[in-house]
Design a protein around this nucleic acid. Structure first.
Lengths: 337, 337
DNA sequence: AACGGATCTGGAAGCCCTTCCATTGTGGCC
DNA sequence: GGCCACAATGGAAGGGCTTCCAGATCCGTT
């Protein structure tokens, strides 16, 4: 049977008193430190159990100068950002890895100026041992905390305007190359692309991958139509592409949402997928399985991304030398190609 | 131009020294407390700016016995739970409301025994001022912290086995009634339902709503086919229903995923939606807009749920008297009815 | 039996704040 | 001009923990 949850919080002093030792010894027992005789160790452990003692992390943090927590900062202007399943998976990965290291997770949504200000205060107040920064966009004021602050900051995905010391990224170039090559391998030769906003590194990298694959195959990459990663933008971009290149037979969309929009636009234009036009997306979110036909797409290990970000941060805090990490993607073939 | 982020963290003592006042006065300035002359107040404020001082929340928490943070605990065996967009929105709502109150959010995923143990430690260690408990299932060991612990706990959704002192819930009964009545208003009379696992209060409540509506209309509620809220389970349940009630003309599914499965099963069985069979779901997640045809469903204000949970917790911590809250739903008509 | 060494032990200082309280200073009022 | 009330001030005592250090204990050696 579990202990009662005592209403009053026991302190280390009480434990020490009950065990008949000094506070120092009790502290050592708790921290598994040496220089404690077997007898006293057991006596302290007994007292701990009896009192249901749990050390106060605030006091401990104060004394050790270690917060015992890490912040995951979602930096994006849109407060809805968390509804994106991407972040759910990211958070799940981070949570798992932080649990391994027994760190707590402070989740910060820096969507408003007020939110950003709070994050900055959090960081500067040393309430956390490190920061994971996700969805950081161009000119993100929070990127400052990585450049100037003393705290380790791990980026999820590379920012567009500088190369941080620590980051974990998805191999966007490689994934986009694979996607494009897959279309080419299917015999498509007039392959176009729908790109994301070029102020994001993700969009740029996927663009680059498309161009590389085309060039390598001796084909001329066509200029992308740009969308904002939404389904509607994908449909609109597809419509423009159909206009510009009526003979197209393959489309690489920079994400699944836009690919879904493209499928809709193609259907509207009377082109059948994959017979007339093959389509590949990127992300492998749930939507990819719900489109008609189901979407061939590049799977990115989002959970792993979160996990590795957290592990990297833990490594840095522990003083281990770690460097950037790029995670591989793989193509998931469904019915759209 | 913003201040430099100083590498060494200034302390209140340093601020006081620079301002030429005692620590007490400096502290009062920071906390906007009275009994500080205008001159000293300004002098302290200047020193704060100059040093880039940010109070250490750990020390403050220790002195005030207020953690300045609240925990959002997602209690579910499945570590994938966060990938569910439901939780993304919930978290977003919580984050927004906690920001208003200037509390930090500790996000805890209690998926493993280890995770649960950590949550319990967190709570007992007084590292947070209160807890929001979401997705708590039957016999959730964490529910103990609400019953025995001294900390305020706000439930998101009612647990099945007891009535907590504080909770915020969605009006599941009302929503399900509306959904069913909508089907009846559309002239359907042989309306069946796909229910969720009966060890969840959500599933029970939606079941109840269906029965109420049927009974009120003078019809006999039919026993539900049960699924585990997944798309596949929805399809399977739909198949069983078609077998048992070949003449059915309306389906209320207890969530959108199962409704999507039902649509698939109906299509497979050659029934057209909404002509032969009308279908209503529950949740209004993204999937509802992606199905073919788009799903009529009961919208639940998940973000509001999170927001109200956080506000309730803030209220309790502030000593305000607050009670349970039930949030209204509304029907979103699309093409499946 | 005396000694060097390693192993325990507890006192005390410190981490950075808040807050109580006694003290000083100020203005108003009779 | 003296007295009272009240605002302003800083000293000091916490809050709960870690950790340094000096002193006490114990062991095996010679």
């Amino acid at each position: 049977m579990a202990e009662e949850l005592p209403h009053r919080h026991a302190t280390l002093d009480e434990v020490a008193a009950l065990a008949g030792v000094s506070r120092s010894v009790a502290s050592r027992v708790i921290n598994n430190a040496p220089h404690v005789s077997r007898a006293k160790r057991e006596s302290v452990e007994k007292a701990i159990r009896k009192l249901g003692y749990v050390p106060d992390p605030k006091a401990r943090a104060l004394a050790t100068r270690q917060a015992g927590a890490a912040a995951l900062v979602i930096s994006r202007d849109d407060p809805e950002v968390l509804a994106d399943p991407f972040f759910g998976q990211l958070v799940a990965g981070v949570a798992g890895a932080l649990e391994e290291a027994d760190l707590h997770m402070m989740l910060c949504v820096a969507a408003t100026p007020r939110g950003r200000e709070r994050v900055e205060r959090l960081v500067r107040s040393r309430a956390v041992d490190g920061v994971m920064l996700a969805a950081s966009h161009e000119d993100d004021p929070l990127a400052r905390i990585a450049k100037e602050g003393p705290l380790p900051v791990v980026f999820g995905g590379r920012p567009v305007d500088f190369e941080p010391r620590w980051y974990v990224d998805i191999d966007n170039v490689g994934g986009a190359r694979d996607a494009t090559e897959h279309l080419l391998a299917r015999g498509r030769t007039r392959v176009v692309t729908i790109g994301g906003p070029l102020d994001t590194e993700v969009a740029r990298a996927r663009q680059r991958g498309y161009r590389e694959a085309m060039t390598l195959a001796g084909l001329t990459p066509r200029p992308p139509e740009i969308g904002d990663f939404s389904e509607a933008a994908g449909a609109a971009a597809m419509a423009r592409l159909l206009e510009a290149h009526p003979d197209l037979d393959g489309v690489f969309a920079a994400n699944d949402n836009m690919a879904a929009g493209a499928l809709r636009a193609l259907r509207g234009a009377g082109r059948s997928v994959p017979e007339d036009v093959a389509v590949v997306g990127f992300d492998d979110l749930a939507v990819a399985q719900l489109t008609e036909p189901a979407l061939t797409t590049v799977h990115q290990p989002i959970r792993d991304l979160g996990r590795e970000m957290a592990r990297m941060l833990v490594g840095i805090v522990a003083g281990r030398a770690v460097g950037p990490l790029i995670l591989p993607t793989h193509l998931v073939e469904r019915s759209s190609t």
